[in-house]
């Protein structure tokens, strides 16, 4: 299994491949992933130039471990085949497929990637996929999409297009996205995949951004799409366990490990009743703390 399937993806920062200055060193802001965009941000007559910059960036630049996701153009465009070839030739980590509505959309890209890997002599299965759900149909088919491929690590909501399809707009209250968010997180978890929330574009409303990010964290999302480096630190803060949570999780894991050996199933930690059902959650907290670089314990 590709170890990157489950990597930490709290932030995925969109960067326009048409602008070399943006893609030359985004790792200094320390996002978990960058989303190198060939799609909407790139002017129709600049697709080729953007692919050229992308290829050289992927080949030349050391992104210091930041995941390099490329958003290719949709299956309804004349660009996606060439986009996939550049992704494979350049050696990106993952491909975000836009406007996915059916499992077969993922299959088409999966097949194109495989062909390109053969063409460029690359190993199969190294490049992962993610599906952007941008329509009501895509949301309703979320489970089918999430289970479509072993190389697919998760799905992401694209709020702008989705609300257009829903015949409403982004209101700032989140009410228009409630259904989609609930459906897709349930589908993603049922398929054991990751799930990412849509962008928040009003950079002047940092308070609104933080509120929304706190909410989607509580809903179960793994991370959020980011449009500006300023959104990275607050998102990481929200997705990083607090010292108290880490401390509790550590105790839970250690106690369950030792009590299991003694044949005890239920006990208390900090006055709270604990059993084996807490184990995975506590482990996840520790993993998250480790990935965020704040865990200093011995687990």
């Amino acid at each position: 299994m590709n170890p990157n399937l489950k990597r930490l993806r709290r932030t995925m920062m969109f960067l326009n491949c048409q602008k070399p200055g943006l893609i030359k060193d985004p790792y200094i802001y320390k996002p978990d992933s960058i989303m190198l965009d060939l799609e909407d941000a790139v002017a129709e007559n600049q697709k080729d130039a953007a692919r050229f910059s992308l290829y050289h960036a992927l080949q030349e630049i050391d992104y210091h471990g930041v995941e390099r996701v490329v958003r290719i153009n949709g299956l309804d465009t004349p660009h996606w085949q060439e986009d996939v070839r550049v992704c494979v030739a350049g050696g990106c980590d993952s491909i975000r497929i836009p406007k996915v509505e059916h499992a077969k959309d993922v299959h088409i890209i999966e097949e194109a990637v495989r062909k390109a890997e053969d063409e460029f002599g690359r190993e199969h299965g190294r490049i992962l996929l993610m599906a952007a759900l941008e329509s009501t149909l895509g949301i309703l088919n979320a489970y089918e999409i999430c289970t479509s491929s072993e190389l697919l690590f998760g799905c992401a909501l694209s709020g702008g297009d989705y609300t257009k399809d829903l015949q409403t707009k982004i209101t700032g209250t989140g009410v228009e996205l409630n259904g989609a968010r609930q459906l897709m997180i349930i589908a993603a978890r049922a398929a054991k995949k990751q799930c990412f929330d849509t962008v928040f574009t009003n950079l002047d409303d940092m308070e609104g951004f933080i509120k929304e990010t706190e909410m989607i964290k509580l809903m179960g999302f793994d991370g959020k799409s980011i449009v500006n480096p300023r959104q990275i630190a607050p998102t990481h803060k929200i997705f990083t366990p607090t010292e108290k949570e880490i401390d509790f999780a550590e105790k839970v894991v250690k106690e369950i490990d030792s009590k299991k050996a003694m044949g005890i199933g239920v006990f208390t930690v900090n006055g709270k009743m604990i059993d084996i059902a807490f184990y995975d959650g506590a482990k996840r907290t520790i993993d998250m703390a480790k990935a965020a670089g704040v865990y200093e314990g011995d687990l």
Partner: peptide, 8 residues
Amino acid sequence: TSDVRKIM
């Protein structure tokens, strides 16, 4: 400034 590089 809103230049994130400078803010950083």
